[in-house]
């Protein structure tokens, strides 16, 4: 009873913080403020991951997203000095209104799909009890290095290509 009430509390609190931070992220003019609000949204989504028995992903979210990727974005914003530039008051407000309207329709479609959807399928072996006994990271490792061994290796090659690509792209060419 107490645990259920606590999980409702965590869901409502973290969910509201995530939505408000996301809205502020989209509407701020200064890109640095946008990036900082996005970090707030990432943290609250990480809290929701914790209440969903995904401790490994919650920690990875904080380290990879809120730590590494957002630090990279903040460095780039600092380097190319975007905060001085005001966004142009675009003439295309009609395009924005139509685009926003279509996206709202997309949202209503997703909500309709979710409301008419029943989770079916056979349940897997990883109950919360088993995860707590055996260890979350250990179980993720067993799946990742067992069933998903080949995709994991491909992902490492993808990261290597990303590193090489970033270095090649941002190198200043000598004329």
């Amino acid at each position: 009873m107490i645990a259920t009430a606590f999980s409702w509390l965590v869901f409502i609190g973290a969910g509201l913080v995530a939505i408000v931070a996301a809205l502020l992220m989209v509407t701020r003019r200064n890109p640095i403020h946008s990036a900082l609000w996005l970090i707030v949204a990432f943290f609250s989504v990480a809290i929701i991951y914790l209440s969903l028995n995904a401790q490994f992903i919650a920690v990875a979210q904080v380290i990879v997203y809120a730590g590494a990727i957002m630090m990279l974005v903040l460095f780039v914003i600092m380097l190319i000095h975007l905060e001085a530039e005001q966004e142009l008051t675009s003439k295309k407000t009609s395009a924005k209104i139509i685009g926003g309207f279509i996206t709202i329709i997309l949202f209503l479609e997703i909500v309709a799909a979710v409301l008419s959807f029943q989770v079916t399928g056979t349940k897997g072996p990883f109950t919360p009890q088993m995860l707590a006994n055996y260890g979350n990271v250990r179980s993720v490792g067993m799946v990742l290095y067992g069933k998903y061994m080949f995709p994991f290796e491909i992902a490492s090659i993808l990261l290597l290509i990303g590193i090489v690509g970033a270095v090649v792209l941002s190198k200043r060419r000598k004329e």
């Binding site: 995904a54 490994f56 992903i57 990875a60 979210q61 990879v64 997203y65 590494a68 990727i69 990279l72 974005v73 989770v119 399928g121 056979t122 349940k123 897997g124 072996p125 990883f126 109950t127 919360p128 179980s139 993720v140 799946v143 990742l144 069933k147 998903y148 995709p151 992902a155 993808l158 990261l159 290509i161 990303g162 590193i163 690509g165 970033a166 792209l169």
Partner: peptide, 24 residues
């Protein structure tokens, strides 16, 4: 909801792709 860890593994791969995408 399905007591499965496949979702966690997929999120792991999405994070990998997001990191590579951020760099490039």
């Amino acid at each position: 909801a399905l007591n499965s860890l496949d979702g966690v593994v997929f999120v792991f791969f999405v994070m990998t792709v997001a990191a590579a995408e951020a760099a490039v």
